[in-house]
Design a protein around this nucleic acid. Sequence first.
DNA 1: CCCTGATTCGC
DNA 2: GCGAATCAGG
Length: 269
Amino acid sequence: MSWTDERIEQLRKLWEAGNTASQIAEELGGVSRNAVIGKAHRLGLQSRPSPVRSAGAASSAAPAAPAAAAPVAPAPVAAPVAAPVASAPVAAAPVRAAPPVAPTPTAPTPAAAKPADEPAPFDEDDADTQTDAEAAPVRSTVREIETAISTMPVAAPQPVIRSVGPGGFLRQGPGDQQPPATPAPPRRLVPAKPSSDIAGKTGLLDLSDKICKWPIGHPGEPDFHFCGKPINPGFPYCLDHCSVAYQAQLPRRDRRPPPPLPFGGPRVR
DNA sequence: CCCTGATTCGC
DNA sequence: GCGAATCAGG
């Protein structure tokens, strides 16, 4: 496929409408995403926010310097940590009307962020050409909306960091005096008493550095316990279990080949 | 992993 | 000029 005037025009439209390169490529057909990007650049189409560009430098591209054009307030890094508690939108409910705090000139945080270049809403000159491309613009619009929604500042705020404790209550930060909204009754995660299965056996709490810590059974099983015999001095296990735990390595030639792994071994890629 | 756009470079 | 390969962030 070659870049006919028609296809170039289509590319231009879709690109400026905010479609992704892969969408455009799919729409045009016969070209790859890379081809679209390459062509777009050669056409001098305005570059769009790219993951890569942010870090490095706006080398060749970006004549429309966003720095100058951006209407965004400089926002001199207003204490990123301090803010959340007071303004926390998370605690949506009972936050008493924020006291008339000192007129902190907080930057219009997220809402102000707005694309430097607004895509021209419509190109009236091309209205006649629209007929052949009915479907595309619609899809673009849908995507634009989706993108807009997903990037809306409204969805963002969740700055209050609280962890969820057992029972579902929220742990509070130091300055957070509001009681938890729903104080869930404490729940035990483990039985208060050891089950009768391990009565008389060495449980976790019975461990010391004088008795064998060799596990008998598996954690989670009702009768899981530890060996509990006196240790072999200098080791965490008794003599018997030391002999299991510490084995001299045989010379390679004397070793048994390991049994085949149950699932065909590790994946190889 | 997936996605994205940018860049490079052989053709 | 073209676009695959590659890079690099989200």
